[in-house]
Design a protein around this nucleic acid. Structure first.
Lengths: 235, 235
DNA sequence: GTCTATACTTCGATAGAC
DNA sequence: GTCTATCGAAGTATAGAC
């Protein structure tokens, strides 16, 4: 019960989050992380063994926190559509509390999982898993139309992450007068994604009425494959 | 009329695309680019002056090609919804022809535009500009509901880019048996994004019938602000 | 335009005292 | 657990001959 507690590792992780988010794995400098954490560089190696070890520890921490929050939403007792609303808001909230998350996530996606061991990959995989569970459940309850859960996962998570990670470059473009910052607030964007997903997932209760001119016969299609799968629009 | 033509710069750019996409700016090695292009390293510096100069030249080439294709679609004489379908298919096609594009785009977003000069930023900005033009036009023609064009841009481009950039890590997760590769083909994903955007943008012609239980009075809202702007779902 | 050789710098990591 | 000093590898860039 109380030692001064391991404050060093936590400070190092916090500093590493900023450095890796801002510069990427290769661009990150161990010296800068140590300086930012007000810790000696040798201390950093004492705790995390190597730059790679520190990176993996950071990613495990981030992704386990994120997936934990999403799993709680998935397990809650709410209608599927509301779970999706909450999942979107939850991701946005997580990003607000961990501003470095989007950049790190995008960089790791682009990196293709290099630098990651199996354990870290597993914690990463828990994020799409939790969201897919909500969607699959909604489909089986006929609350959602049959979509590919992973596809729906990408259409809700990717915009949030790219939008937030893109804040610095949008600011840069605004100061260079190359684009209007255009009053797209984070909150408004969250609502946009929520509305988009509501519409994207909504089961068509009544027979198709308007909105798609071409559609020959009635609902005599195949089983699970959504209408999406069958139609090719401009290949 | 014919000199052997400047094949070296083109080969260098092609090699640089692979290297920068796979490793990022900081992780890219000039030696590797030169070797892959079968060109002497001094030759590379002769043509592009520096690693940064090469990077900027590459990004200008990529983004001007992409925005050119999107501008052509925006200028075409088609209904707005079909333009969006074509824009989505066009981005997917561009990615198929430039497999390195998603990783480079995500990395540059995360990087916040470091390494980029004003001219390169301007070519980058042309991409959202072209897509936003289609959406704004559709809104003014009442073909789309009033959404923020930039928000809609993110919800259609980000999933495509993240999905494709994420292919390596999905493969890694599949071989580690951490997630099912689950038969989400690139074509199916394009159709999913098309369908999502159709539904997200569709103007509600008839008075809201079902699909939203809560909704008091009729359509006496403000002017441009869509319904999205006013409602907050789980803040 | 093309190549070899190399100058200069930076970074990850550790040795070893306290 | 903490610090100083430093090694060795690797990287960008250039000088200068052809």
């Amino acid at each position: 019960m109380g030692r001064p507690a391991r404050v060093s590792p936590d400070r190092i992780l916090a500093a590493a989050a900023l450095e890796f988010a801002g510069r990427g794995y290769a661009g990150a400098r161990v010296d800068r992380i140590a300086r930012r954490a007000r810790v000696n560089k040798a201390m950093l190696y004492y705790h995390f063994h190597s730059k790679q070890g520190l990176y993996r520890a950071l990613l495990r921490q981030i992704f386990s926190r994120a997936s934990e929050r999403l799993r709680a939403i998935a397990a809650s007792d709410r209608p599927p559509a509301e779970k999706i609303d909450r999942a979107i808001a939850g991701i946005a909230g997580f990003i607000r509390e961990h501003a470095f998350f989007p950049a790190i996530m995008l960089r790791e996606v682009a990196e293709g999982g290099a630098h990651l061991d199996r354990e870290t990959l597993a914690t990463l995989a828990a994020v799409p898993h939790a969201v897919s569970a909500i969607i699959a459940d909604g489909i089986s309850r006929k609350a959602f139309r049959p979509v590919h859960p992973l596809a729906a996962y990408f259409t809700m998570l990717a915009p949030l992450v790219v939008y937030h990670a893109g804040a610095p470059i949008r600011k840069e473009l605004a100061t260079e007068h190359l684009v209007d910052g255009g009053a797209l607030s984070p909150d408004a964007f969250v609502r946009h994604v929520q509305e988009t997903m509501r519409r994207a997932l909504a089961a068509d209760a009544s027979p198709p009425r308007r909105q798609r001119p071409n559609r020959a016969a009635g609902p005599s299609s195949s089983r699970v494959a959504s209408r999406e799968e069958s139609r090719a629009r401009i290949p």
